[in-house]
Computed example of a mutant assay.
Amino acid sequence: MANATNLNKDSVGRRKFLKSGMLAGGAALGAGLLAGGKSATAQNGGGGLTKGDVAILRFLAAAELIESDLWVQYAELGGLTSGMPIEVDPNQQLNSYQAALSNLDPDGPQYITSNTLDEISHANFLNGYLESKNEDPVNFDEFRTLQGSQASGAQDIGRLTNLMHLNVDTSWYIRYRSATNPDFGATFPQAIKINNRTAIPITNADFDGSDHIQVIANTAAFHFGYIEQGGSSLYAALSQKASSLEVLKITLGIGGDEIMHFLEWVDFAGNGVQAPVAPRSANGLTFPNFFQPLNPLVQPSLIFPVPCEFISPNLPHCSVIRPLDDKFAGAVATIASFTADGLFVGQSKKFLSTLQTLAEEADAAKREL
Rank of each mutant, 00 (worst) to 15 (best):
Ser244Glu: 10
Phe140Pro: 09
Leu302Gly: 09
Leu369Phe: 15
Asp208Glu: 04
Ala31Leu: 10
Ala282Arg: 02
Arg197Thr: 14
Phe224Asp: 15
Thr339Phe: 04
Ser337Asp: 14
Pro182Phe: 00
Ala365Arg: 03
Phe222Gly: 04
His212Ile: 00
Arg144Gly: 13
Ser39Leu: 07
Leu49Ala: 02
Leu343Met: 14
Lys38Pro: 09
Asn195Arg: 04
Gln43Glu: 14
Leu252Ile: 03
Gln110Leu: 12
Val277Glu: 08
Lys241Thr: 01
Ile311Thr: 13
Leu65Thr: 09
Leu160Lys: 09
Gln214Trp: 05
Val168Ala: 14
Glu361Asp: 07
Ala151Asp: 10
Lys366Ala: 05
Pro85Asn: 01
Gly26Asp: 12
Ala24Ile: 01
Ser68Glu: 14
Tyr74Gly: 13
Gln299Ser: 05
Thr339Trp: 06
Leu285Arg: 08
Ile86Leu: 06
Ala2Lys: 08
Ala151Ser: 07
Ser114Tyr: 12
Val12Ala: 15
Gln147Ile: 05
Gly231Glu: 13
Pro305Glu: 08
Leu297Met: 07
Gly153Phe: 04
Ala359Phe: 09
Asn289Leu: 01
Val138Gly: 04
Pro106Cys: 00
Pro316Ala: 03
Leu80Thr: 07
Gln292Ser: 08
Val12Trp: 08
Glu131Ile: 05
Leu294Met: 01
Ala151Arg: 02
Phe287Ser: 07
Pro137Cys: 02
Glu131Tyr: 06
Lys133Thr: 00
Glu368Arg: 07
Gly52Met: 00
Asn124Glu: 12
Ile194His: 06
Ala199Tyr: 13
Ala331Ile: 01
Ser149Gly: 08
Lys51Tyr: 00
Gly230Arg: 13
Gln150Gly: 12
Asp211Gln: 09
